[in-house]
Amino acid sequence: MTERPLLEVRDLSKYFPVRGGMLRRVVAQLKAVDGVSFDVPAGKTFGLVGESGCGKSTLGRAVLRLHEPTAGQVRLAGTDITALGRQELVAWRRRMQIIFQDPYASLSPRRTVRQTIREALDTHAIGDNDGRNAEVQRLLEVVGLRRQVLDRYPHEFSGGQRQRVGIARALALKPDFIVADEPVSALDVSVQSQVLNLLAELQRDHGIAFLFISHDLAVVQHISDHVGVMYLGRIVETATAGDIYGEPRHPYTQALMSAIPVPDPKTRRERIVLPGDVPSPIAPPPGCPFHPRCPQAMDICRVQLPPTVNVGTADSPHEVTCHLYDEADGVRADDS
């Protein structure tokens, strides 16, 4: 570890109480995020993949404290965000922003593009009136929208254009970290690649770090430096994009990779079809949460949660949480 990562997430958990019965007592905890740790270095992208309900969106929101975490720490540039009071948090929010999946739902239909983008500048009292107007125009240019759209409303735009407005809004406070939650999933293929290129360009030009959340493994590979695979509230494998796609180690990652339809009729791959469905996070199976669907499950998997093991090198860790790997394959990951 040479330089301290911009964002350090340690044992982060987010539980939602499940209420039931006549008295609406808490009868169970839904562990949407359960003890997750990862780093995002400055100017880099950490891709988070997983299927619906795995907790990836909750994790993204917990990192920003849009959901109050149940336990764990989130350090941005060394400061523990989770320990901040309301007032202090507002100041830190300038440094961390979010882009949502559906730009139609996340933009107010009653506000023009100008008002939407200016709002953050107004809230944080940045610059004077002329300064803010000039900044809004500059932001529009950065995301590739024409100046003429300033006084239009969201419904007048296509999905791709709306997402550009959402990106401009996120950029207004010059954040160094952005959570991008499925930012291209609602877009058509031909527009998807335009927006992905824009995000990559912003990272190059402004050194922004991204937590990029998506269910689309091809998109995540394209945009990410490091990738984490989530299943039922936990990260089961983390490595560089090259390692995780080149040599997936966790049986779940392997199944995910094999399930992606390849746009080439000549390729025929051996597919690992997983039996059954993702279990409920209210009553996760004992032991490794993946064992009921795992083609390689052993006896120990049914009773004991697997440890996280580094099967890569000290310089380029490849961490996998699975009983198939043990210290013999690499050093046991121990974060300090």
Binding site: Q161, D188, S190, Q192, S193, N197, Q221, M257, I260, V262
Partner: peptide
């Protein structure tokens, strides 16, 4: 322009300019 799993990551994805 579809992102696909590639051996070598591309710097920029090819795009279709403009909109429908």
């Amino acid at each position: 322009s579809i992102p696909r799993i590639r051996r070598q990551r591309l710097e920029t994805l090819p795009v279709i300019e403009g909109t429908v």
